[in-house]
Design a protein around this nucleic acid. Structure first.
Lengths: 154, 154
DNA sequence: CTGCGTGCAAAACTTTTGCACCAGT
DNA sequence: ACTGGTGCAAAAGTTTTGCACGCAG
């Protein structure tokens, strides 16, 4: 895949916006982080290591920009923080995200899964209710393999 | 179905908690309202019509209580407000809620649907990933029948 | 140069908490 | 009476906004 940073820079130029170090740093933070699902504050802390002068307001403003450009997805785990993750869709596939999350009630980890069954469900909704589905978000709460085993022992 | 208010009062007594007018008023507000999915502030406004002296803090405290008793469900539409709706489950069926919402991007209405297909999906997740699903929440964004028709015209 | 973007601080907003008073049991 | 509940106001916490300065184009 083409580097996400390049795509970002391209989009900025297209729209007559400026490519600043802060904006690139913030995208990088989201890209590098393996555990994903970062809050604004977490992104701020990461970027500050490299660029201590950055302001939290800039993080919020850039996050909003990135979401508008469909480069990142908003995600709400219900813990009071809004979280963000890099979108994993292809170039032009701007619609239909893949927000399928398994949230472990034991360790708090968030896994992702690919649900092709959702398409069937959407077809059903379209037919029975006339509701035209554009995007969806699915959250499953439960226990991951390890935590389920741990609980089984007790 | 047995009156939800009676069930609430019963549960309160069981736990040695008090049945106050405020608590009953708040449950009533959630029960009466047809459009459901109310924010704390909205509940506050509704109850204030009947009991102008109520405080917003009491609404928050009661909401928390009702959620703990599984009488209402938390719901996050991603618009910055936490919302609440009366649970539609049977007496003892405390696990596995039915948070299946269709959110219309046109008119903003929120519809509900019953998704039996989700069970299939859960079985698949259990098998392939060893993740034990306890509860789930599904949100579909799109256009309801009316709004889809409206958009078709243009 | 021109104007968009940034940092800082203050504001805005939702939700929580401390405390004195009040009401249900 | 006792104890938990309420209202008010202040606090806490996240996100937004106004403004002067600085940097990208």
């Amino acid at each position: 895949m083409p580097d996400k940073k390049d795509r970002f820079k391209m989009l900025l130029k297209e729209k007559g916006l400026k490519v600043t170090t802060q904006r690139v740093d913030i995208l990088e933070a989201l890209e590098i982080r393996p555990d994903k699902h970062l809050t604004a504050e977490e992104i701020y802390e990461i970027v500050k290591e490299k660029n201590p002068d950055i302001g939290l307001a800039t993080v919020y403003r850039t996050i909003q920009l990135l979401a508008e450009l469909n480069l990142i997805d908003k995600l709400n785990l219900g813990d009071g923080y809004v979280r963000y993750e890099i979108g994993n869709m292809d170039e032009e596939q701007k619609t239909h995200h893949h927000h399928h999350h398994l949230i472990c009630l034991g360790c708090g980890n968030v896994l992702t899964f690919q649900g092709d069954l959702l398409d069937t469900l959407e077809g059903q909704i379209q037919k029975t209710m006339g509701f035209e589905v554009v995007d969806h978000e699915v959250k499953m709460y439960g226990y991951c393999k390890d935590c389920a085993a741990e609980r089984g022992k007790e």
